[in-house]
């Protein structure tokens, strides 16, 4: 072992960076803490023994015994923590590799389709373009499903970092509604917005909150079979911002309601009305809101409709 390796091993911060855990769960940090505990305990045992015992040999034996017991405990604790930390690191590496391996074919598919449609390697007929568009659309659907599975896996592995900043929830909702208008119109669903004037800024990861709103709105439109109305309301409630999406759709059967936020769960109404879905959207939505220290919930009546809501912190209170 050369000097550089020894210095590297002594750099606790550097060593702990390889684990996806806070420093107090890092085995090297635990080792240092246990070392300090052993030294302090040994000195303490010596000073107490010295006060009450005259025989120096007996003092030495007591100190040795206490140190020995503490060393064994330190070894067991550090070894256990190291195994947990290694498992967390391997899980993170596995997720990284799987993310890469699952996404790689989609980039290839997307670019090959782009190249064919561009006409740079020969003109294509309208029929061929139509089938390529279908291929592109289905590839995108599969990609979105894979992304949801990867996100759900990351949430469960505790690898779900958020980029929290102040942002305008009003503008975000307006953008989401604009991009959903075509889908809503095609589904014969009218969307109305009720947003409080002078709404304070929200504090959170805008991209992730967008995912939650899109999920609520997508479900509201999907389950409003035939002519329907979806109402989105946003207002300040106590120290948070409250958002709800209310629909007049098929509703959720009472016996399914307690499972609605579970991974891969799809209510009987989903199968009855033959709607597409992975069963991951609400699980991910709940994880996102809880990670923002917000609340999420719903109320629903079969045949009458559902209201899904969440709260997130206001920006001023976070800074």
């Amino acid at each position: 072992m050369n000097k550089e390796t020894i210095l590297q091993r002594l750099n606790i911060r550097q060593q702990c960076k390889k684990y996806p855990l806070p420093i107090w769960q890092c085995p090297q940090f635990i080792f240092v803490v246990m070392g300090v505990v052993i030294i302090i305990s040994t000195l303490f045992t010596y000073s107490i023994s010295f006060k009450y015992i005259d025989d120096p040999l007996l003092i030495a034996l007591i100190v040795l015994l206490i140190s020995w017991i503490l060393l064994i405990m330190a070894y067991v604790v550090t070894h256990g923590v190291e195994k947990l930390a290694d498992a967390a690191r391997l899980k993170m590496e596995f997720l990284t590799i799987m993310t890469h391996q699952l996404r790689a074919p989609f980039a290839n598919l997307k670019w090959i389709i782009d190249l064919l449609v561009s006409g740079k390697i020969g003109t294509i007929s309208n029929d061929q373009k139509e089938y390529l568009d279908i291929l592109a659309e289905n590839s995108k659907r599969l990609e979105e499903l894979i992304n949801k599975i990867i996100t759900a896996s990351k949430i469960e592995a505790g690898q779900f970092p958020l980029d929290k900043k102040p942002f305008s929830l009003k503008e975000l909702v307006q953008r989401v509604v604009t991009s959903a208008r075509a889908y809503a119109e095609a589904s014969n669903v009218k969307i109305t917005l009720n947003i409080q004037e002078n709404l304070p800024k929200a504090f959170g990861d805008q991209a992730r909150i967008r995912e939650v709103i899109e999920n609520f709105l997508d479900n509201a439109i999907k389950y409003s079979k035939g002519k329907g109305e979806v109402e989105i309301s946003v207002f300040k409630k106590d120290k948070s911002l409250y958002l709800e999406v209310k629909d007049s759709g098929v509703g959720i059967p009472k016996e399914d309601q307690k499972y609605i936020f579970q991974k891969f769960f799809r209510a009987k109404s989903a199968f009855k009305h033959q709607t597409q879905g992975s069963g991951l959207g609400l699980f991910i939505a709940k994880s996102i809101i809880l990670a923002h220290k917000g609340k999420i919930g719903f109320k629903s009546q079969e045949g009458k409709g559902s209201t899904f809501w969440f709260t997130i912190p206001i920006a001023e209170q976070q800074q």
Binding site: A104, A107, N108, W111, I112, L115, S118, K120, I121
Partner: peptide, 15 residues
């Protein structure tokens, strides 16, 4: 390392 991507980019960039 993906030869499919290499072929795609070769054609696109040569064009």
């Amino acid at each position: 390392d993906e030869s499919v991507l290499q072929k795609t980019f070769e054609k696109a960039l040569r064009a």
